Computed example of a mutant assay.
Amino acid sequence: MQVIQPSDHHRFFGAQLQGWILHHIRQEHTSLEFGIICWSLWRTRNDRVFTGKIVTTETFLQRIRAWINFVRNAQDKDRLIHSSRLPIRTEVEISWKPPPPEWVTLNSDGSVTTESGHAAVGGLIRDHTGRCLAAFAMNLGMCSITRAELRGVMEGLQLAWDMGFRRVRVELDSRCAV
């Protein structure tokens, strides 16, 4: 890996620090490499000063290459995701609105951990004043997020029905489940 082209030696070694940094940061084709090299120099210097750890030049260059490859791969994957026809996740700000009198609102949410796949649901039923009339939570074992969201709706509707409510507005944050 050649960081400095021979034609740039005079500019690289002869410039003032501020101008030198600005020049290299503004270079679109080398700004990534420049940033990673500066960061690696700083980290290696700190390791040496504060822990006495000395790194060989070859190890230093291998780390730089690995970081550059890591960042480029991440950028390539990001471009691939955003250029494909996959739906992009959108966030929508939601706030609770009271139901009409004689109605209740069921708010339900499901959750699945990415590490284990274990799911849980919870929810509550509120009246038109916002007062909590009932709440529930349960462990579902392993299932998909959509199944967890739908199970929360089912459990909440069953609870509302058992309490005698027949006018129930359901709110949840899963577009897929809706």
Rank of each mutant, 00 (worst) to 15 (best):
T114R: 09
L140M: 04
P100V: 05
L17W: 13
S95H: 12
R48F: 15
W103V: 00
Q2E: 11
L86D: 09
E28H: 09
T30F: 04
R26Q: 10
N69V: 04
I4M: 02
V153C: 08
L172G: 14
C38S: 14
A134R: 06
E28I: 05
R72E: 06
C132G: 08
D109E: 09
L124Q: 02
S108N: 00
A160K: 08
Q5F: 08
Q18D: 08
F136R: 05
N46I: 04
D162I: 03
G52V: 04
L150E: 01
T113Q: 12
L106D: 01
W67F: 10
Q5A: 03
V168Y: 05
A135C: 03
E115R: 07
G164L: 06
G164R: 10
I68S: 06
N107W: 00
S31L: 11
N69M: 12
L159R: 13
T57A: 13
S111K: 08
I88C: 08
M154E: 11
F13W: 15
R43I: 13
F136Q: 01
A74G: 15
H10L: 05
G152H: 11
Q158E: 13
G122I: 01
C38P: 07
V168C: 03
Q2K: 13
K53P: 07
T44D: 09
L22P: 06
H10R: 12
I145F: 05
